[in-house]
């Protein structure tokens, strides 16, 4: 018998929402808590670094579902929750070429967009975010301030930031702070 009911809630439920900072309208930043569907962590077995085509089958077909961030290391993300059967089906595809770990409840995605989004993120990371070197679909694992995060460009003026769940609200507050000079609209799921 369970002594208490586990409460399922998204990591950013209690995060700050609304409009903050400058009142200009031209280059406002939009901050959005994204669906906590699934996040899978893939690590290639030794000598199997070149699994790109196999790993792409693990994704749900979304445009930026598979995110490489180092040799033989990927995150696969999607908006839909995975059942245990879905997960074991994906694990079977990889057989013993790579290991797969379900991180769906461990990492959270935050969408950030706006004309000045590169200037905002550049306050926290030294990664060159210029589109010439950081193309749409490209990912980079880096630090934003002192918080480790995976940055993915999803459009000309939009990025996704994936962060460990426990750091999500802290990073959310930091991103609002970094966006104040442009004005920011922060919106969680509800």
């Amino acid at each position: 018998m369970v002594d208490f009911a586990l409460l399922h809630r998204s990591a950013l439920t209690g995060a700050k929402t609304g409009a903050f900072g400058a009142t200009s309208t031209g280059s406002r930043i939009a901050l959005a808590a994204l669906a906590e569907g699934h996040v899978l962590h893939l690590l290639a077995a030794h000598g199997n670094d070149d699994l790109q085509s196999l790993v792409s089958q693990i994704g749900d077909g979304g445009p930026y579902a598979v995110r490489a961030y180092g040799p033989g290391q990927w995150f696969v993300v999607g908006d839909a929750a995975l059942s245990a059967a879905d997960f074991s089906g994906k694990a079977a595809l990889l057989a013993n070429k790579a290991s797969i770990a379900d991180q769906s409840h461990g990492r959270v995605r935050i969408g950030i967009s706006g004309a000045s989004v590169e200037a905002v993120l550049a306050k926290g990371t030294a990664v060159d975010l210029d589109r010439a070197s950081f193309a749409i679909g490209h990912s980079a694992m880096t630090l934003i301030g002192h918080i480790s995060a995976l940055i993915t460009r999803t459009g000309v003026e939009s990025f996704e930031v994936m962060v460990l769940r426990g750091f999500a609200e802290s990073l959310w507050d930091d991103l609002i702070q970094m966006s104040l000079e442009f004005g920011v609209d922060a919106k969680t799921a509800d």
């Binding site: 961030y69 180092g70 040799p71 290391q73 980079a140 694992m141 880096t142 630090l143 480790s148």
Partner: peptide, 8 residues
């Protein structure tokens, strides 16, 4: 060690 990047 590239701790906060590719971990290589």
């Amino acid at each position: 060690h590239h701790t906060s990047g590719c971990r290589r």
